[in-house]
């Protein structure tokens, strides 16, 4: 067995070297570059959060821009805000679907709540140099206090303040950080005098576990996003928030200088057609019909006559 060894060793070495070379090739490949290099000067980079609904909106922007003759580089699902905000600020992403209130808070932690327009105006002022927001859509996807339809009917609930009419103990469910948020259980008590019996942490940001807990009556009041299609499909109702306890979160494209008037016009036309019911319907196609983002986007744009 030793006679062969030298040749075999050469083979081992060759394979090892080859692997390292291949690896070096891999390492400079797709997931490692964060999209700085791939876009040429006439290409618009469209990004999206690591969230299915945001990806659908981004895909709509991308297809609308492509239809308008632009070349689009999709950098989708690039994490949560702390990851992509620096990318947008550095100019490596040109178009990003955002939510007015949440983005405002990320840029200015002390930002006050207000109407949709007030928040939008504040956001315009808070954006760093080189970034602007185009028209906001009517559609919003914001935090809400949500109950089941049956629970609302029992006590005649319409808005958050009406929760004082509830006579049974209310257990609140949501992410654990909700407890300390300015719109959390404490605020409900101090601002509206609503008695909260307990808090059950559910760690999926108003996702399927929260919905299930609400439907099973393990919790009675949950923090769910208003455009979540589970609201309609599970007979839930998001209580009205006339006092803007939650910051309005209207869908708004954040864009760089590279977005010219023509591109802006295209995106504004999209925003004009996007209301909350539409957004919920688009989300429903993703969650209930399990459709992919590009299919959903093409269908809607065609139907609206936008492409």
């Amino acid at each position: 067995m030793f006679t062969n060894t030298r040749g075999r060793l050469a083979l081992v070495s060759a394979v090892a070297v080859g692997a390292v070379v291949a690896l070096a090739g891999c390492a400079s490949g797709d997931p490692l570059d964060e999209g700085e290099s791939s876009a040429g000067s006439d290409t618009l980079v469209v990004g999206s959060q690591d969230y299915y609904s945001n990806e659908i909106i981004a895909e709509i922007y991308a297809q609308a821009l492509e239809d308008g003759g632009f070349t689009v580089d999709r950098q989708f699902r690039i994490g949560q805000r702390e990851a992509y905000l620096p990318e947008i600020e550095s100019g490596s992403i040109d178009v990003f679907p955002e939510y007015s209130g949440s983005l405002l808070q990320a840029l200015d932690a002390d930002a006050a709540t207000g109407t949709a327009d007030e928040v939008y105006t504040a956001l315009e002022g808070a954006l760093p140099e080189g970034l602007t927001v185009l028209d906001r859509a009517e559609a919003s996807d914001q935090n809400s206090w949500t109950v089941t339809q049956a629970f609302a009917d029992t006590y005649g609930l319409t808005d958050i303040a009406s929760l004082t009419k509830v006579t049974e103990p209310i257990t609140v469910g949501g992410n654990s950080e909700l407890e300390t948020r300015p719109y959390g259980p404490t605020a409900l008590k101090e601002k509206y005098g609503i008695e909260i019996a307990g808090f059950t942490p559910v760690e999926d940001s108003g996702g399927p576990l929260t919905v299930k807990a609400l439907v099973d009556n393990k919790i009675q009041l949950a923090n769910i996003y208003t455009a979540d299609p589970n609201i309609t499909s599970n007979d839930l109702i998001a209580l009205d928030d006339p006092d803007n306890l939650f910051l309005p979160d209207n869908v708004v494209p954040v864009v760089s200088d590279k977005v010219d008037d023509k591109a802006a016009e295209i995106l504004n036309a999209v925003s004009a057609a996007l209301d909350t019911d539409t957004l919920m319907a688009l989300n429903a196609q993703s969650v209930n019909d399990q459709a992919a983002a590009d299919t959903i986007a093409t269908e809607w744009l065609t139907q609206e006559g936008l492409i």
Binding site: Q80, E82, N175, S176, E177, P201, V202, E203, D204, S205, L209
Partner: peptide
């Protein structure tokens, strides 16, 4: 998926 243990700090810090 649950309100449990030290991992909470990682995920709530991330959010």
């Amino acid at each position: 998926v649950a309100d449990l243990g030290l991992g909470r700090y990682l995920f709530s810090g991330l959010k």
